[in-house]
Design a protein around this nucleic acid. Structure first.
Lengths: 161, 161
DNA sequence: GTCGTAGTTGCATAATTATCCAGCCAGCCG
DNA sequence: CGGCTGGCTGGATAATTATGCAACTACGAC
């Protein structure tokens, strides 16, 4: 295993791409599509990716198809945050009323900027180091909710469940 | 069976209600919830209702849950169509891959406009006369699903009540 | 170095969902 | 009326999806 995390991330990127481009109705189809894109994975792995990416299986017009998470992104600056999370492997953890995010070295400031632009209302303030961002929430409840929301952007939840 | 269609419609309405209120993760849960609301139905029927209503099963933060279509489809002009159906007595019928809608004289164009704005993806095209609108679907299956969806807007399915 | 821990993956399989088929009912036509 | 047709439904089952488990790798502590 050369770098499992990077590979996983690339595979999930490809997965997002294929589901938004093609109409694939089963996970077996997804496996085939991924294989065509150069990623080897089994149905089991795809099933787990789907959960992590928050993909949905829509049942419309008599057929079924997988689709990216709520195609409608309401928040303006939110889009930037989403793209960031898609481009970098961000991990999130919970520490009481603090949400701790880790990304690649040197990217923390960009991440914090995206977070600020998103105007997450549970966040009291953010503090960026080199590869880590602290988000202070008003209390533990809000922190948990915030992490949950971030998870839908593709942030891998770590330790909190 | 006193009035299967009306019962179906009521059940689907109840289904929409329960999925938007509770977090139900399997169709067995939906069956139980419906039973609690006074509707008897089996998993098979629920599965079909889900297709007709366009419900989605979202997989995020480790759990799964059914949700109304609005969560994944950006409604948009759909609201206008819904209001139209509430304001006018629209009737729908199926003709192979054609959905035929009939409303009050002179309102067909407004109805067709609302349909177009709704971006129903099963609809290939619409044609409005004076009191009638034809919606061409790609095939019979899609036409059926489309009519089912329209039924949830209050369109009476085939024949006066 | 060895060990322990955390994370990812595939296999096999349990759990869940979609569909085939038959039965039933209502409406319609002759 | 009697037969036919179309639509709804449930039972049974095929198809699909989720998950327990074990193997493996990378990483850090000791």
């Amino acid at each position: 295993m050369r770098d499992a995390l990077a590979r996983k991330h690339h595979r999930q990127q490809a997965l997002l791409r294929v589901v938004s481009q093609q109409r694939l109705s089963t996970q077996a189809d997804l496996v085939r599509a991924l294989r065509g894109a150069g990623f080897a994975a089994t149905q089991a792995t795809v099933s787990r990716d789907i959960v992590e990416l928050g993909l949905v299986k829509v049942s419309r017009d008599g057929t079924h198809a997988y689709a990216p998470p709520s195609a409608a992104a309401p928040g303006g600056g939110m889009e930037r945050l989403r793209r960031f999370c898609e481009d970098y492997p961000v991990e999130g953890a919970l520490a009481t009323n603090l949400v701790v995010l880790r990304s690649l070295p040197g990217t923390a400031n960009a991440l914090a900027a995206a977070l600020d632009a998103s105007r997450l209302d549970e966040a009291v303030g953010t503090l960026a180091g080199d590869d880590t961002v602290f988000i202070a929430a008003t209390n533990e409840r809000h922190a948990r909710a915030l992490l949950g929301r971030l998870t839908t952007f593709g942030i891998a939840g770590k330790g909190a469940r």
